[in-house]
Amino acid sequence: MKQRFIFLEHTADVKFQAFGKNIEEVFESSALALKETIYKKPIQEKEEKEIEVKGQDFESLLYNFLEEFLYLLDAENFLLSKIKKIKIDKFKIKAIVIGDKATNYEFANDVKAITYSEMFVKKIKDKYVAQVVLDV
């Protein structure tokens, strides 16, 4: 996968499209786009966390998956570096994620929330595309 995500114009907020050759990969790319919005430079790989998320369709699954990282940030001071393992079964995700303490990084950007605004997860030809607007 050459480019995992791109950022698009949105006046108030941050909008991105993420790509993947399968559903797991497009979810992983979306998490990386969120990480990029919060902190542009690399995050060290010091802590591992297991997460489990459910949804009703791919959109709500993506919403809940991304929101988990905002929760980890505020409640557990955890900033994502990368996804080590991700498995999606129906509308359920199990993943192992790696990152570091958020307080080790200066001047990170705040993402207030994931939104449903203009959100989609689609298969276009042979690849998956997800679009998300973040409230920043």
Partner: peptide, 20 residues
């Protein structure tokens, strides 16, 4: 974060109950 989570929680609950 408290307010952000309240909004997210109820967006989800309302969708589950009423459908999107």
């Amino acid at each position: 974060g408290l307010g952000h989570q309240v909004a997210s929680d109820y967006i989800r609950l309302i969708e589950e109950k009423y459908g999107a």
